[in-house]
Design a binder for these strands. Structure first.
Lengths: 403, 403
DNA sequence: GCATTTATTCCTCAACACGTACAAAATCAG
DNA sequence: CTGATTTTGTACGTGTTGAGGAATAAATGC
């Protein structure tokens, strides 16, 4: 059972203030007070502490109130971008993406490695990731010592609490303790998280979920993932396991049942078609979906049928997710969106037909083909979220005194 | 955003202590301190306040420590059963159940009304419920003034926050504000909650979920419902909507897709068979499932086939729920369990085949045909939960001074 | 220059958790 | 029967925290 002491109270309010400053750009203390329902004096005390810890900065310039306003001008507060730096990574079958971001989540450097890591031994993959992280950090003009946290977004079933990769299409073995592996290699605190969860938080901070504290994100990549945002926080099921949409069974009887990934996974859509020359090459290079769109536009019947099947199945699955979670918005991302109109229209249509009438108006569907960088940025956001919640001034590591 | 002040801190710790006393029977202050990680002095202060408010009682008898123990004997604390009384109700198509419970959730009186309310106008149903509540309260030797809260468990999609019945097989209209309706009739604070949520909390307090703070319950009655317990609390999706398992679509393509309720709902299983005389009569009286079991035992081929189809579909759906929520236990309740071995075995078998191998060991299935009284008791627990969380001594209504 | 307005800070108060010391109530030893 | 022992529960003081009011700071308008 969680016990409440003054420390927890302080942590909550500190987080509230910090998050308000992050969300609402340059903001004055009074406005924080209004938004957070905290008294001005409490806000002042907390912001003083945050300023003292170097997490926020004052800016006297940007008082954007009605210019002809009397009274003492507001002092605007902003996040100190240099308060911390984190690395976010997205690992996929055919490429890796790395970003270094500052405390605001803004990308400082970006590295894309088009390397096929599929089914390589764990050691090889760790090597490649370690290399990518180090290079991206150097590109940002930093050294690893200056990085606070690394977060690696992985496809598959991830146990966030322990950092265990339960199963992933990229790794040939189950139950790999990737968090420990990378922590030891980099000597930096490392988090492992599902790539779907990462992009969910990424969209909450910077993308299509900025205005909502409750939403659901469906990611259609090599694996079919799910992220549920509940009250501004990721909903991690019991044990912190990430969800794997691809493992859902579609069908009412065992005879005609099929796993969603077998209809709508990347491999399922492209698989049948990928025998022939140039297309197979594209798939191997991770550009299968873009290529597929061209083929569909050129009326490739086999692919069109596969895309239609996939769209239908996913539309139904999304309707089921809405039935269970009732979010006001469903953001759909991932490389499969590249399949184009046919796929998207089928999906939206199947959704409309499958959703029960009584909750038809509850959720809106939003399609967004986020750039790869955003996935990595989302992983960085996961890391930042943990930093935000961690106690800094009081119990955290004291900043080394400078002489 | 939720702000933290001393009041919140106190509320949290008060709840922790109260809940610890409820769960672990007669318990001494030191033991509370050990279990809750609160200091002994804090526990002492809080228990003093609880004693002062009359929510708990001291019991000097039951020091069950090693009998030959020296030192000052422990004073055991228990919930004061008479601190409050609530009414819980379960409304179903063919019958209503009411219970009055004390502050511990123990049933004081129980009333079962075998009335068919299916599709009656709202006014008629409210009348019947009002009557049932009043009779049950009188049976308990009480008057309505002495009841603190009423909670009514309804099948269908319920919006707990607003007390709105979004849709229910019992009501012919959608979006009925049942909470207000009953509050006005009874002049007692009334909560409306999904019957699945009610039985979920009921099992958490008294049934198969007593030892777990995370679990999932699937209810198979006229509607197919779901309750998710997360960290000891009901997980209510965005907007507080209850889930409706029956609205899930089973199938990967629209052509072969069917709603779960159309395969595994009570009507779907019994519907085809219920034309003939005695069976139709049983169904009308709400005893369809029990009768069906007898017919299946007598090798009624049509019914057996229907039960098998339903079991398969539900097994698959449960596997999907486990994929999404990853609970350590799934409790399956409801009248459909009466269908017997064929149904249960098919369900368990379909589940085993549908669950992804990587999480096969995560969840255990538990079947439990809870008595109707337990559903009503669960509704009472919902009411009690709200009482527990509400502030009593400080900000709540001060007890009228007695002269 | 002075009143006015607004943002921020200083000071005091109440509530809380916690640690220490002390009182209470039983057992055990002689 | 008396006193030491052991364990439990409580009174007091300290250090948090946040809230509210008074005072201060910094601009505008007349």
């Amino acid at each position: 059972m969680k016990t409440a002491d003054p420390e927890l109270m302080r942590a909550i309010n500190r987080f509230t203030v910090l998050d308000t400053i992050r969300r609402h750009g340059p903001i004055s203390r009074v406005e924080i007070s209004e938004r957070s329902q905290l008294s001005t004096t409490t806000v002042s005390a907390i912001t003083a502490s945050l300023l003292d810890d170097g997490l926020i900065l004052t800016r006297h310039e940007g008082d954007i109130r009605n210019a002809a306003s009397r009274g003492r001008p507001r002092v605007m507060l902003v996040l100190n971008p240099d308060a911390a730096r984190v690395v976010g990574a997205k690992i996929a079958a055919h490429q890796m993406h790395f970003v270094v971001t500052n405390f605001c989540g803004e990308v400082i450097s970006h590295l894309s490695l088009p390397i096929r890591v599929n089914r390589q031994p764990v050691g090889v993959i760790s090597d490649l990731i370690e290399d990518g992280v180090r290079r991206c950090v150097v590109d940002a003009g930093l050294s690893l010592d200056e990085i606070d946290t690394v977060c690696i977004g992985f496809p598959g079933v991830i146990e966030h609490r322990t950092g265990l990769v339960r199963s992933s299409p990229i790794l040939s073995e189950p139950d790999v303790d990737f968090a420990r592996e990378m922590s030891q290699r980099l000597n930096v605190a490392t988090i492992v998280e599902s790539d779907s969860h990462a992009i969910t938080l990424g969209h909450h901070w910077f993308g299509k979920g900025r205005d909502l504290d409750d939403m659901v994100l469906v990611s259609l990549e090599q694996t079919l993932g799910l992220g549920v945002l509940n009250g501004g926080q990721l909903f991690r099921g019991a044990g912190g396991l990430s969800h794997n949409l691809g493992d859902l069974m579609m069908g009412s009887g065992l005879a005609e049942t099929i796993r969603l990934s077998a209809v709508a996974g990347e491999q399922a859509i492209l698989g049948e078609q990928s025998q022939q020359g140039r297309f197979a090459e594209a798939v191997r290079l991770g550009r299968g979906m873009a290529h597929a769109q061209a083929l569909i536009a050129a009326e490739d019947n086999g692919l069109t049928a596969a895309a239609t099947r996939a769209g239908e199945a996913i539309g139904i699955a999304v309707a089921n997710i809405v039935t269970l979670f009732g979010p006001p918005r469903v953001v759909i991302v991932g490389s499969s969106l590249l399949l184009g109109e046919v796929f998207l229209n089928t999906l939206a249509d199947a959704y409309r037909r499958a959703i029960p009438p009584s909750i038809r108006e509850v959720a809106e569907l939003v399609f967004e083909n986020s750039p790869d960088e955003m996935w990595a940025q989302g992983a960085a956001v996961v890391a930042l979220c943990e930093l935000y919640e961690s106690p800094w001034g009081t119990t955290g590591p004291a900043p080394a005194p400078q002489f």
